[in-house]
Structure formats: structure tokens, C-alpha cells
């Protein structure tokens, strides 16, 4: 018998039977069918699988689901709310922060973690914070522009809608 895991995923409490050795990414993708989170490498090298746990970025391919008993996990699916894209999603879309889109969910979640603690990060701070998230398509330029455009500080000064 698999033990029951009590975990909050995208704001909703769930009780799921999960084996002790199930990785968080597999739990999300296979069991909950939240396939937005991507696997890009064999573990810990690319950031494609980044989700937030209690607001902090975590590599979901490097942690067991069972270790998050009672914690709050947020995935890319949580960014779309009230029928609207989040500011980050909007910016990545409009500024071409996504080409093939495979790194995008992880990139957006890592950026989300950054923007929650830093309302107007500098380019250097963005490069630092997202340095573990690889992208093979964009050369990162438009990703950085997207994050800057979505930053709450930036949106306040330009009067763009949230």
C-alpha cells in the first residue's frame, strides 16, 4: 500500500496515494496530469522542471513528492487565474520569451519566485536568479526582457496593467 500524501497543489489540498520513491515531477505529471512542468535532463541540470514549494523555486526532478507533506506546491498551471494569463505569461507571450516553449514553464516559475522577492530586478539580478534555467532557443535576450516587463516595479512605472 502506498502511503497517503497530503499536499497543496496550486491552492488546492489533495490527498493522494504516492509511493515514497515517486519524484515530485512524476507525481505532478503522471498522477495529477499537470503536464505543464517539463523534464529536460536526467536530474538537476536544466531547470525545466522548476516549480515553487512554499514560494521558493525547487527542481521537481530532484525531490520526492512525499517529502512535501503539508506543503504548498505551485506549477505553471497556477499562473493562469480568473481566465487570464499572469503578467509573466503575458510578457513571455508578447515579447517572445518562448520559442519552442519547452523551457518556458520552468523559466516562468523561477522568474515568479524572483519577482515575489524583488519587484524590480536588474538585468544582472535576473541573469543570476535564472542562471540555472537553460534555454537552447532564445539566447536568453527576450527571456530577460520578458521578466523585466512583468516585474511589478516596472509595470508601476510604465502604468501597464497587472
Amino acid at each position: 500500500m502506498k502511503p497517503i500524501l497530503r499536499i497543496q497543489v496550486n491552492g488546492r489540498w489533495r490527498e493522494e496515494a504516492v509511493a515514497d520513491n515517486t519524484l515530485l515531477i512524476d507525481f505532478l505529471r503522471e498522477q495529477l496530469q499537470l503536464t505543464g512542468t517539463k523534464q529536460g535532463c536526467d536530474g538537476g541540470e536544466c531547470g525545466a522542471c522548476t516549480v515553487l514549494v512554499d514560494g521558493r523555486p525547487r527542481l521537481s526532478c530532484c525531490a520526492f513528492a512525499a517529502s512535501f507533506e503539508g506543503h504548498h506546491v505551485e506549477t505553471i498551471e497556477s499562473q493562469w487565474q480568473d481566465g487570464q494569463m499572469s503578467p509573466l505569461q503575458q510578457a513571455f507571450h508578447e515579447k517572445l520569451g518562448a520559442q519552442c516553449g519547452y523551457c518556458t514553464p520552468g523559466m516562468i516559475m523561477a522568474a515568479e519566485a524572483l519577482l515575489r522577492t524583488n519587484a524590480e530586478p536588474s538585468e544582472a539580478e535576473i541573469r543570476q536568479a535564472l542562471g540555472g534555467n537553460l534555454c537552447r532557443c532564445t539566447g536568453y535576450v527576450k527571456i530577460i526582457e520578458s521578466v523585466q516587463a512583468a516585474a511589478p516595479g516596472h509595470r508601476q512605472t510604465t502604468g501597464e496593467p497587472a
Partner: peptide, 23 residues
């Protein structure tokens, strides 16, 4: 133009091959 299929990509709704695997 933002990509025609860009919304799918930024929302995580875009289905790549492994996302379509039947369980």
C-alpha cells in the same frame, strides 16, 4: 506578432509528445 501558438506555450497547455502519453 507573438507566436500563434504562444499562449499554449506560456500557459503550459502546449502538449509535447511526452505530455500526450496515455497512462
Amino acid at each position: 506578432m507573438p507566436l500563434y501558438d504562444g499562449v499554449e506555450k506560456v500557459t503550459g497547455r502546449a502538449k509535447y509528445t511526452a505530455d500526450l502519453f496515455p497512462r
